[in-house]
Design a protein around this nucleic acid. Sequence first.
DNA 1: CGATACATTGATAAACCTCAAGCTTCGTGG
DNA 2: CCACGAAGCTTGAGGTTTATCAATGTATCG
Lengths: 251, 251
Amino acid sequence: MNFHKPDFHPVNVHLGGTCCPDPHGHDRCSSCAVRPHSICAALDPDELQELDALAQPLNFTAKHTLFVEGEPAASLYNVTQGVVRLYKMLEDGRRQIVGFALPGDFIGLSLGESHTFSADTVSNTGVCRFSRTALQGLVERKPHLLRKLLEFSSRELESAQEQMKLLGRRTADERIAAFLIAMRDRWAMLNGQSATVPLPMSRLDIADFLGLTIETVSRGFTRLAREKKILNVPEGVRLMDIRSLETLAAA
Amino acid sequence: MNFHKPDFHPVNVHLGGTCCPDPHGHDRCSSCAVRPHSICAALDPDELQELDALAQPLNFTAKHTLFVEGEPAASLYNVTQGVVRLYKMLEDGRRQIVGFALPGDFIGLSLGESHTFSADTVSNTGVCRFSRTALQGLVERKPHLLRKLLEFSSRELESAQEQMKLLGRRTADERIAAFLIAMRDRWAMLNGQSATVPLPMSRLDIADFLGLTIETVSRGFTRLAREKKILNVPEGVRLMDIRSLETLAAA
DNA sequence: CGATACATTGATAAACCTCAAGCTTCGTGG
DNA sequence: CCACGAAGCTTGAGGTTTATCAATGTATCG
């Protein structure tokens, strides 16, 4: 029924990873590389320094669990580097990845009491950790931050609904094409336009994001490569026939 | 490829429906039946009167299009009665329903420039219409409303992610059971606990919500009825074996 | 009472999943 | 430096679920 060994889907264990506090001073936020893409872009300089005091920069190796669905949401995270997968499990081990958090993405902006999904790192990852209550305090004092949070939350909602369309109504090939195009666009926002799309996540991750099996994803990549629409490169994929990929992915 | 005649999925036409302004005075909001369940529960009496001035109560018959994906979002809606389906279309006519809005639900809380999905009434429906700009003005003056909007948006996001899990990883029978349980819970919030679940939407609507075909949904209902887990009643379904339905639907 | 929309049922086909084997890649240690 | 093993990826054969096509049934409304 489509799950590949429960122990591939860590739920309560911290698989790996270490966390080492960043050595820098009180001005880290203002020099943060992902600030323009993150929620922090909404802050003016003095607010940024307030946030700086709350931010705890951390680094994790791959496969480190940040938090698990159902846990009290003590901390929220802003990804500064690497990729984090966000997922929900069914009781029998089936997994649905609900999103990949890239640099600049904020995890847990609902400010809810407990986490509604699990999160762990896909690759080596840098994050800024915030205490939920401290952040709530800041938001209390600066209600205009809520405008920005709502904006981000709405964008997330819109992309979740896009994904519902993909999962409910698209074929396997369409899903893969749509995934590649979407990843290209997201990396383009961060690194600038490029036909080479980094794919740090495994085929299994992609499968669990697209509602497919690893074999179907693999066959899809193979077919796209055979048709010269993509080219497999070390850490990702190069989009060769963007036109036809976009047609496949088309809304 | 799973679509049932494009003309069953109106995109740009207003299929039916009329809108007749409500005759009442300036105090409609405070006596609104769905206020406790809606965004308006966050308002104190004077704010409520301010909102009252902005609210335009309307009634529509079934199959009336409120707005279409991509249109500028001139108006937002609070459902007071009936059911509205929210959906996205693929170019070739495939449709994915991303949600059903029930009384108390607010449609379009993202405050974005244009609609990211289409909306039309499933049954006779009452709504409160708000001008987006007017509402933005109110929110500007009362930033604490943003807290409530964010709360609602986060809840929507969580349920969208739940639906992603359903669409990506559940079998047809599990989807149907989960749908019935979820609808029971939503009606329970409004009308109180009951094993009889109103289903004003068609089988096709349910299919397009669950990522299935109408035939698969129909067979699912028939099987559940044969196994005495549900009983088909005029405008909906009666849940007979809630235990086993919940097991089927289980996370 | 007929027409129309909606729902059910059946037969068949296709897409995708499952199971199983082989292949790559990469890191480790002899 | 090469051999080995582990993890991840690909490929193949066959099975299951769900979609598709088609026909029939049922309710509603003029």
